[in-house]
Computed example of a mutant assay.
Amino acid sequence: MAKDMTLMWGSGSPPCWKVLIALEEKNLQGYNSVLLSFEKGEHKSQQVLDINPRGQLPSFKHGDRILNESYGVCSYLESQFKNQGNKLIPECGAEQARMYQRMYEGQTLAQKMADVIYYNWKVPEGERHDSAVKRNREALIAELKIWEEYLKKGPGPYLAGKDFTLADVTVYPSIAYLFRFGLCEKRHPKVAEYYNSLKSRPSIKATWPPTWLESPQGQDLLKDI
């Protein structure tokens, strides 16, 4: 089954990492893994464009089926291989509802994170404003407070409850990315506890970004958040 799959991905990318974790959780090792370099522009190569006209990663193909959105790939893998590997959608209705809520809320967290981390990269120098930087940082702080409360009050230890689900598959990479950029663990103790508790999970440990392993020291852009 996995031999019919091809995943083109980039190291450190949260969307790519989600798919890598999902494949591990479903015991779908043995797929064709194509690691590409963002720095070299390999995500814009013809190899990628042939299945993803936007030239973005991840780009995923299973037989003649193409999925290029990370949430879609993760959901597809769970749907197609529900009886293989770890079950990622809980049976309990309450946990399932919480899973979907946290899973898609993760997109808001990822966007607010990107608004801070990539501001200088996305916005031309002449169009940058200190007020926008301040507003983006305040929005990320407010968003992190929401997740801190979820983890403090939730039935835990995972985002949807007692089981590791698609919510964790899709949100954990963004949380790890925040700490990679220097998020202060003392200011966000529950988020930090969640982050550290899952580092040793086999699917996460096996897919830890190779560039992070090569250079364990991250950046300090978020140290004051």
Rank of each mutant, 00 (worst) to 15 (best):
I146M: 15
E148G: 14
S45I: 06
G55H: 07
P157F: 03
Q101I: 05
S13D: 10
E105L: 10
Q84W: 13
F60C: 03
K87P: 03
R102V: 09
K162C: 05
L77C: 08
Q29I: 01
I51D: 01
E127N: 10
S11T: 00
G63P: 01
L213Y: 00
F179M: 12
W208S: 13
R98N: 09
P216Y: 04
V169S: 14
V191A: 12
D163A: 13
R201A: 08
Q29L: 04
Y150I: 14
A206H: 12
I225M: 10
P14T: 01
S197C: 02
D220E: 12
Y119L: 02
I146W: 14
E148T: 15
G41H: 07
S11A: 12
Y195D: 03
L49E: 00
G161P: 11
I146F: 15
R180M: 03
P53W: 06
Q111H: 06
K162P: 03
P189K: 05
L88W: 14
P53A: 10
V133C: 03
A160E: 10
A176K: 01
A94Y: 06
W147S: 08
A139C: 06
Y119H: 10
M8I: 07
I51A: 02
W9Q: 07
S59Q: 00
A206G: 05
R98G: 00
P124S: 12
L151G: 07
D130R: 09
E25A: 11
A22C: 15
V171W: 02
C74H: 07
W147I: 10
R187L: 15
A176M: 07
R135T: 02
E69K: 01
D130K: 12
S197Q: 13
K87I: 11
E105P: 01
T207Q: 13
D64E: 06
K26T: 08
S79Q: 13
K61H: 01
P14D: 05
S11H: 02
Y195Q: 09
A114Q: 11
F181T: 01
P202K: 08
C92T: 07
V116G: 05
I117Y: 00
T165L: 13
V123M: 09
K18D: 01
E143P: 09
N83V: 08
K122C: 02
P157R: 07
T108N: 14
E78Y: 11
L20T: 05
K3D: 04
E24A: 12
S197A: 14
F164E: 14
W17C: 08
G126M: 06
N68R: 04
P14L: 11
S37V: 07
K199N: 14
W121F: 15
E185M: 10
P209Q: 11
P216V: 11
A139Y: 06
F181W: 14
D220M: 01
A142K: 14
P53E: 09
L151F: 08
G85S: 11
I66F: 05
S75M: 15
S203Q: 06
E149A: 15
L222C: 05
T170R: 04
